[in-house]
């Protein structure tokens, strides 16, 4: 699973970070630091919750392709 973030449209709500500080790291201004990251095994539910928590809807979860 991957997290993909439309970083340019982050406005610094930091609601994703409130769900998981490690999955959704912030810069010093409190805006999202990353554009894409792999979700470590076991953290899928937190990744989904973090994505859902974004008021700007800029976080997408890319599920692993089940061949």
């Amino acid at each position: 699973m991957k997290i993909r973030i439309d970083k340019a449209n982050c406005v610094g709500n930091a609601r994703c970070w409130a769900v998981s500080e490690s999955l959704f790291p912030l810069d010093d201004d409190g805006y999202i630091l990353i554009e894409e990251a792999d979700v470590p095994p076991g953290m899928e539910a937190q990744a989904r919750r973090g994505a859902r928590a974004c008021p700007e809807r800029v976080i997408t979860i890319i599920e692993d392709d089940a061949h």
């Binding site: 406005v11 610094g12 709500n13 769900v19 919750r49 859902r52 928590a53 008021p55 700007e56």
Partner: peptide, 20 residues
């Protein structure tokens, strides 16, 4: 509410700077 976000602090670039 399943973590669904409100926009009490507005949305877009004018999101309340003091929201935190």
């Amino acid at each position: 509410r399943g973590g669904k976000p409100h926009i009490a602090f507005n949305a877009g670039p004018h999101r309340c700077l003091g929201s935190h």
